[in-house]
């Protein structure tokens, strides 16, 4: 490949990459349907699901690569991230979109997607992620829940030969290589809806228990935040769609 094409300003292919585990009854189908409309390819690593996740994935034509792990690597997150990354890069994408099975790009973001990637100025894009709470009409906003106040990098240019580095950690490994931070990025005001907390009170309680079990001493996150999952009256803000 000629070096002058490190950054292509047009005709970039977009590959979405997901890591999934037992998502069949949740948002996965909607996410894949949604992605089908605006990405070129989807690459998935299934972390030993025991439900119909794999079958569901296979039913989408754009899923070009699906790696099924027989044994869960959940406790070796670093390996999982690397596996998915390498699989996604093998599709020779122009850009990669890292998606979780409960994240939805707002319509405006999808409309701008090609403009965002078909340029040669920056190599990654940050979006504003919103934690929906209790349902899909409101997001949570208070001292402990304000991820939407900063940008989350989820869309990156794939530059063959660049130095890609994931810290070798068991948990809290970033979903994209850390070394993107050295490349120029664009902080967009486009929004992503995260439905991971848009669940019933019982499910919230189960999630709380899982967090406490995994990190009882708050080494990876803050105990105060874990406890706030159970807040009876969290501050909820209505979501407004934009044209």
């Amino acid at each position: 490949m000629r070096n002058e094409t490190v950054r292509k300003a047009r005709g970039n292919r977009l590959t979405a990459m997901l890591q999934v585990r037992n998502e069949a009854d949740k948002h996965l189908e909607a996410v894949l349907q949604d992605l089908t409309d605006f990405v070129d390819e989807i690459v998935i690593v299934d972390d030993a699901s025991t439900d119909g996740t794999v079958k569901l994935c296979r039913s989408f034509a754009k899923v070009s690569k699906l790696i099924e792990l027989k044994q869960s690597s959940f406790h070796r997150e670093w390996e999982l991230r690397l596996l998915l990354w390498n699989a996604a890069c093998e599709t020779k994408p122009g850009w990669l979109l890292s998606v979780d099975a409960d994240e939805f790009y707002e319509d405006k973001a999808k409309a701008w997607m090609r403009t965002l990637i078909d340029q040669d100025e920056y190599d990654w894009v940050g979006f504003r992620f919103f934690d929906f709470w209790g349902g899909t009409t409101h997001y949570r906003e208070d001292r402990l829940w304000q991820i939407h106040r900063r940008h989350t990098r989820s869309l990156v240019r794939y530059i063959p030969g660049y130095y890609y580095f994931f810290p070798r950690m068991d948990h809290h490994v970033p979903r994209l290589p850390l070394t993107y931070a050295a490349l120029p990025g664009f902080l967009s005001e486009l929004r992503v809806k995260h439905y991971g907390w848009a669940v019933s009170q019982e499910e919230l309680y189960r999630k709380y228990l899982r967090y406490m079990e995994r990190d009882p001493n708050g080494e990876w996150g803050s105990l105060e935040q874990y406890r706030s999952i159970l807040d009876e009256n969290p501050n909820l803000v209505p979501w407004k769609e934009e044209a």
Binding site: Y163, F165, T179, A182, L183, P184
Partner: peptide, 18 residues
């Protein structure tokens, strides 16, 4: 060195390090 720069969030090092 480059990895440590990233871990410590000294991100302005594309020209100096990479």
């Amino acid at each position: 060195s480059f990895e440590q720069m990233m871990i410590k969030e000294f991100t302005d090092c594309l020209r100096t390090h990479y």
